[in-house]
Design a protein around this nucleic acid. Structure first.
Lengths: 351, 351
DNA sequence: TTGTACGCGTTATCAG
DNA sequence: CTGATAACGCGTACAA
């Protein structure tokens, strides 16, 4: 039982080696102005030589203002968010803040994570990317620092007015837009791959838009054509889309078209159709939602609703900083999507 | 200038409210055995009521053994790693450890990140997922805690013997395996979408295997058919594959087949071929590497080298814990891949 | 320009 | 079973 381990090197060691006080080393590390170039260099050399790395826990504990923004992403697997994160990182760095990303699973509470992080890192603000904020008001109040809701299912009924800063698309409108488009292509029996049965967020809204479009065109809503995601499969995933489509194909319900509430599910649908020996768009049209990069590369290229993720990301961060600087109150910006008409949809075959 | 903010609630407040000492609260929080159920409940209630959340920085600072494993992932976008991370999380939780994931970009130093994290969180061990460990020996020595290299380009010449625990595939062999397969399909002019020109890791090894296969079949290596990734585009991405393939298609060099060193690049190649009005596999065969989920769903389904990522992930964590428990020395396990023959490749057309 | 000393919130130790 | 107290490593008033 020897103690041959952990001679961890601290700021004191560096100070001792350089024959200076710890505060001088601290100043050197944090680029304070009031330090002579000579001592600063000496300290830098010692740090390099001994491979000293400051302990972040200690720093965070002592620090008042971390100059740090957290981006809390719900759903690692959403490829849409990869771009958003990158843009946010650039914007945050541009303002001399540091950024910390935290990915949370669908079964985790993003607000709890943020609250914990805020304490730990002395955050200046938080960007919530994705996630639903239904019945989270109380929790959000416990988060004492400014935050924005980005690409969140936040135009939900529950979250009204200017309580929060929200940057998102109008899921109802976009659900309508796509459905309307599909109907104009001649489709009447449009199956839909939607969210969870108890979804109260984007899935619910897109579905609402779908139904409204049908009604306006005088088409009855057929509940049998509304499929819900499986709870035990990753949400909005290819596999979930695949499974739902298989059910459709083996069922007795007729349909000519599938509207999936994510591009990933649309791709799953395409594969299921191919596996059944049918063709997209000849036998069935398939449309997605999101505008992920893969939709471009897929064969056939996916017809979809493209979310302006770049603008959303940019605007979210910009506004967060304006709020931090007290230059702005909460705002709520709804972004318009673009309907990309591509290869996976076509006019309904006239028999 | 009022001070109307941050009445942050700490462990002391809870202690005061409950009429106990802070150490008792600490014990309650950390589930220490030596505490009466009654006080424990009282404390739990107070925590609930006041919404107290412990400060992680302070905890980490004081804590000796964090019972925490870090997984450092190089390349967020690699879909292969999503599965691996999930498996690792399960295994780590099963052993009552917590897990922290950190995604690093290609231009970041994963070892530095790990060293910093180790100090900050008092880590027990680290799993490096992806990443190349060429000329990193000195740095890895500074990381004083046990670690394993998983799916790393670690069977590189530079990293020899049993210095580290390594879990990976034999990239040279698998590069050979695929090339050999393609040659047996009748292809002689096989273009390859490889890594960076100065790659010293997986890209280099797969290329080595490719060349060896050609030579063994008596086919001369044509350097013009060896394309390298663009530095300014995300590595191993669809876009990178697309660009390289476009160059191939517009160039004067003949080829009948493309071997891409990632499935993503293979998909990019398929799209470029489609955009040029050609067909896969009728006009060109395309093969990938990795075995990502998308290869299953893509149209045509991708012929590829499937890495046994589940086994690699499982084994990596298992061995890390054995090393932590001093039950094992460093090991080096090479996993064998599976060649999935699917729709994107076919026999060379006989003209 | 530099050094000393205190405190951030928590856990480990030790004495009751 | 419980409480007081000393660290943990760093940043920052304040003194020099």
């Amino acid at each position: 039982m020897e103690t041959l381990n952990t001679e961890e090197i601290t700021i004191k060691d560096i100070a001792k080696v350089c024959g200076v006080g710890v505060s001088t080393v601290s100043r050197a590390i944090n680029n304070h102005p009031d330090i002579s170039p000579k001592t600063k260099q000496k300290i830098a050399d010692a740090i390099e030589e001994y491979g000293y790395i400051p302990n972040n826990s200690a720093r965070n504990l002592r620090r008042i203002d971390g100059k740090c923004i957290a981006v809390v992403v719900k759903g690692v697997s959403n490829p849409l968010f990869a771009d958003a994160v990158q843009i946010m990182e650039e914007e945050i760095k541009k303002r001399k803040y540091s950024m910390v990303i935290r990915y949370v699973n669908f079964d985790e509470q993003e607000v709890d994570v943020a609250i914990e992080l805020a304490k730990e890192k002395k955050l200046a603000g938080v960007v919530f990317l994705g996630g639903y904020f239904v019945r989270e008001k109380k929790k959000l109040q416990k988060l004492r620092i400014p935050f924005v809701l980005s690409t969140a299912g936040a135009n939900v009924d529950n979250i009204s007015a200017e309580e929060y800063s929200v940057f998102c698309v109008d899921d109802e409108k976009e659900g309508y837009r796509m459905t309307d488009y599909l109907i104009r292509l001649g489709h009447k029996k449009i199956a839909v791959l939607s969210g969870m049965p108890d979804d109260a967020s984007i899935g619910k809204l897109r579905l609402k838009g779908y139904k409204r479009a049908l009604k306006e065109h005088g088409i009855a809503v057929d509940e049998d054509l509304i499929l819900h995601m499986k709870r035990d499969i990753r949400f909005y995933s290819m596999e979930n889309g695949y499974q739902m489509t298989q059910e459709l194909l083996t069922g007795r319900k007729e349909f000519t078209c599938i509207f999936a509430f994510s591009d990933a599910m649309a791709i799953g649908a395409c594969r299921a159709i191919a596996d059944a020996g049918k063709k997209v768009p000849d036998d069935y049209s398939v449309a997605g939602f999101d505008g992920i990069e893969m939709g471009d590369y897929y064969n056939p290229q996916l017809t979809t609703i493209k979310q302006p993720i770049h603008e959303i990301a940019m605007e979210s961060v910009t506004m967060l900083f304006e709020i931090l600087d007290k230059k702005s109150e909460n705002v709520r910006r709804i972004f318009s999507c673009e309907l990309l008409e591509r290869e996976s949809t076509r006019h309904r075959k006239v028999l």
